[in-house]
Design a protein around this nucleic acid. Structure first.
Length: 758
DNA sequence: GAGGAATTGATTTTT
DNA sequence: TCAATTCCTC
């Protein structure tokens, strides 16, 4: 991509006298946000109010009308995808000039900065960027060498705590006493953090947090770097400001200090990433931090029907910590639209069936599948829907599932490539040294790791030394030597060969592909295919380094939006998207709001869950279907569920319920606006205040006995009855069954009290 | 050290 | 449930 630091700085063209026509299409508030080009601007934007449009127009406006030189604008987005889209939209407005902007994520900017000044924080050229997997493995290594009890010191837990510190812009030597997890494992965590950081420098690597943290160190300890970068960008635009973490916030404050031309666009009601370090406080504090800021509120919603807006506003109104926006339909004369439909169903399977049936009905009525989405709280919820969609033959795509570059075989292959590019990549070395099997198991690795830690050298370097000694058994030594020779041969090849050919050669010579070809596991074939795809992807790059950087930053795979398909994704993944029809399944206590959100963060956690629900509702243009199940299978057994408290918080007048008989309250009484609301499933649930955890009352934990229609039985079926035991159906008449019970004799019973025996 | 069997234990959300 | 460890034998 473009390099913000290599200035090709021609004079800007003349300022056009006529304002661009696309400004006319904006409403007054949007226009104010676009054209206020002096000083800080905070755009408080509700859902569906044209936030991205405003940002894009502002970008185009700056380029088209201000005497701003190329490459003097920094636009920061939350994802690479958002950056791509914004560039395309801006190009549609002003043409190729849109290229002359530095547009990307904070992390991508961090990489550029470290490429340029990394040596000032102890990095060497060609440093690697670790992903979560590598980070945890590195930490695990340290713990092993330090003889820390791995049972209690779970590396992944320790790692997430360290990352949280980093998100808050905290270096290990500056941890305040109230840093989260500070007392974890008897205060050894700061110590671990220090060792981890030292080790990162030895292996010449950074993690995601470091991309920002090293940047802060550079800016604060090296004024010339700040002057260079801060002077570079005359205008800074930030999208999704509510999701910036503290480290990013500090970046912005430092970079915008000289001129204050900072424009942040965000919606405090859509802040859903606090668990990743995002601080809503950033947006609440904006006016204090940047005095004289112009604050623009965008409240005209162009997306949803007034019914959906009423539901969303009613829900989010239950949050206390918010700046308060009043979302209303841009066109109030428009049809208010269909009510929010709430389905109560017996279990997950029925929920999936119902959602898919509705989607198919809509499709038959002429709605494209592309305009519908199922938005779930947690990733694994997609499975039940996928199964159903496969059965019904409905095309669908899952967004945000296991990503291509995160697959095991791809990561292994990448590790080989990294070793070819960077001979001292310890993590890559450890990953593939015994894959395929070379007889270099845990014992050998342990020896190498010990040497590496003691000598403060990388793992491959340690291997090169150890192979010259007789520390290893002869077989292992021979094998390791052969592997090292392979590595240096590939490294030599790396200079001459193009990346795709190199990758093919390495995968071939290392025996890696053969390993999968010989594997008889059902998914082995697919893995070989994936490896081929990787080689294909490499063809688009002419340097290995460039490709590896692309992989570590751009982990999102291209969504193939070509065919008409139903979208299946998490609520988090849906941020910024919109659909005509949105299905929101799984609105049950403990799942949504998620139990852990409440346990860990109490009321704050609850409010974030509520914001997530708000995001879900406001994705819809025309129709929303919410559903909850009376019970769900969790692992092996059944668990009964209470409907989500969020259902109670929807204004009753915009909701239409359709709940299975006997599921909620008693029969037809089970309406959402009945006294006591949804909480009456199977008797009173216990509620321990706002932010507390609701649990079904004891006694409701029996497996569901879902009434089975009599038509599901036929003569000769073996069935089971709670009081009469096993029996054989003799005849079906109406909703009654004539059954010959093994012990209780012949009886006629209601079909609802009988289940099929196996 | 490899390979299969048995056991366990985990499920927010992700740049 | 299912994947990922650990255990157990060769």
């Amino acid at each position: 991509m473009d390099d913000p630091f290599s200035l090709d700085d021609p004079e800007p063209g003349p300022v056009p006298e006529v304002l661009p026509p696309w400004l006319d299409a904006l409403n007054p508030e949007q226009r104010l946000a676009v054209t206020t080009t002096e000083g800080p601007v905070l755009v408080l934007s509700g859902a569906g109010t044209g936030k991205t449009r405003v940002l894009t127009c502002r970008l185009a406006y700056l380029l088209a009308t201000r005497p701003v030189r190329p490459w003097r604008i920094l636009a920061v987005t939350f994802t690479n995808k958002a950056a791509r889209e914004m560039r395309e939209r801006a190009a549609a407005l002003i043409g190729p000039d849109a290229e002359q902007v530095w547009l990307g994520t904070f992390h991508a900017l961090g990489v550029r900065l470290l490429r340029r000044h990394g040596e000032r924080v102890g990095l060497r050229p060609g440093f690697t960027i670790l992903d979560t997997d590598d980070q945890v493995r590195l930490l695990k290594q340290i713990m092993e060498v330090e003889n820390l009890d791995l049972k209690r010191w779970q590396p992944a837990v320790a790692m997430s705590l360290i990352q949280r510190w980093k998100d808050r812009g905290l270096c290990f030597d500056a941890l305040p006493a109230d840093a989260p997890g500070r007392d974890f494992a008897a205060g050894r965590l700061p110590d671990l953090y220090r060792q981890y950081q030292e080790r990162l420098l030895v292996v010449n690597a950074v993690d995601f947090g470091d991309l920002l943290l090293h940047g802060l160190t550079l800016f604060t300890k090296h004024p010339d770097v700040l002057a260079e970068v801060g002077g570079q960008f005359q205008y800074i635009l930030v999208d999704e400001y509510q999701d910036t973490n503290v480290a990013q916030y500090l970046w912005l404050r430092l970079l915008a200090r000289a001129h204050g031309n900072l424009c942040c666009v965000g919606d405090d009601d859509q802040s859903i990433y606090s668990w990743r370090g995002a601080a809503v406080g950033n947006i609440l504090r904006f006016e204090q931090d940047f005095p004289g800021a112009t604050v623009v509120r965008l409240e005209r919603n162009y997306r949803s029907t007034s019914t959906i807006l009423a539901a969303a506003s009613g829900l989010i109104g239950h949050n206390k910590a918010r700046m308060g926006k009043d979302l209303r339909a841009a066109d109030e004369t428009r049809d208010p639209g269909a009510p929010i439909t709430v389905w109560g169903v017996w279990d997950g399977a029925e929920e999936a069936r119902r959602v898919v049936e509705e989607a198919e009905a809509l499709q038959r009525a002429g709605e494209p599948l592309n305009s519908m989405a199922i938005l779930v709280r947690v990733g694994f919820q997609t499975r039940e829907f996928e199964e159903r969609l496969i059965v019904s033959g409905t095309p669908y795509r899952v967004i945000g599932g296991p990503r291509f570059y995160e697959r095991q075989e791809i990561r292994d292959a990448l590790a080989y490539l990294r070793l070819a590019a960077q001979p001292d990549d310890s993590l890559a070395f450890e990953r593939v040294v015994n894959t395929p099997r070379r007889g270099l198991g845990p014992t050998t690795i342990q020896i190498l790791n010990r040497v590496a830690r003691l000598e403060r050298i990388s793992l491959p370097e340690a291997a090169r030394r150890v192979v010259e000694t007789d520390e290893l058994r002869p077989a292992a030594r021979r094998s390791l030597r052969a592997f090292l020779e392979d590595l240096s041969r590939w490294r030599a090849l790396a200079d001459g060969l193009d990346p795709a050919a190199l990758c093919g050669t390495i995968l071939d010579e290392s025996g890696y592909v053969d390993m999968w070809r010989a594997d008889k596991a059902p998914d082995a074939e697919g893995r070989v295919e994936n490896l081929k795809e990787l080689v294909g992807a490499l063809k688009e790059f002419d340097s290995l380094i460039g490709f590896l950087e692309h992989v570590s930053l751009v982990m999102d795979n291209e969504a193939r939006a070509a065919e008409d398909a139903l979208t299946l994704m998490t609520l988090h993944g849906a941020k910024g998207l919109e659909f005509d029809t949105v299905f929101l399944p799984g609105w049950e206590e403990e799942l949504f709001p998620h139990r852990r959100a409440l346990e860990e963060n109490g009321v704050e956690g609850l409010e974030e869950e509520r914001r997530l629900a708000y995001v879900g509702l406001t994705r819809a243009r025309r129709r929303v279907f919410i559903s909850f199940a009376g019970s769900r299978r969790v692992f092996a057994d059944w668990r009964s569920c209470l409907p989500s408290r969020f259902l109670d918080e929807l204004p009753p007048e915009v909701v239409e319920t359709d709940t299975a008989r006997g599921l909620v309250g008693s029969g037809a009484q089970g309406l959402s606006n009945a006294p006591g609301g949804w909480g009456r499933v199977g008797g009173p649930g216990t509620v321990s205040g706002e932010g507390g955890i609701r649990r079904p009352s004891p006694g409701w934990s029996a497996p569901p006995t879902r009434p089975t229609p009599a038509s599901a039985f036929k003569a000769g079926d073996r069935v089971s009855h709670e009081s009469f035991g096993l029996g054989t159906v003799r005849e079906v008449s109406g909703d009654r069954l004539d059954i010959a019970f093994d012990t209780a004799g012949p009886r006629k019973v209601m079909a609802a009290f009988v289940t099929l025996a196996r």
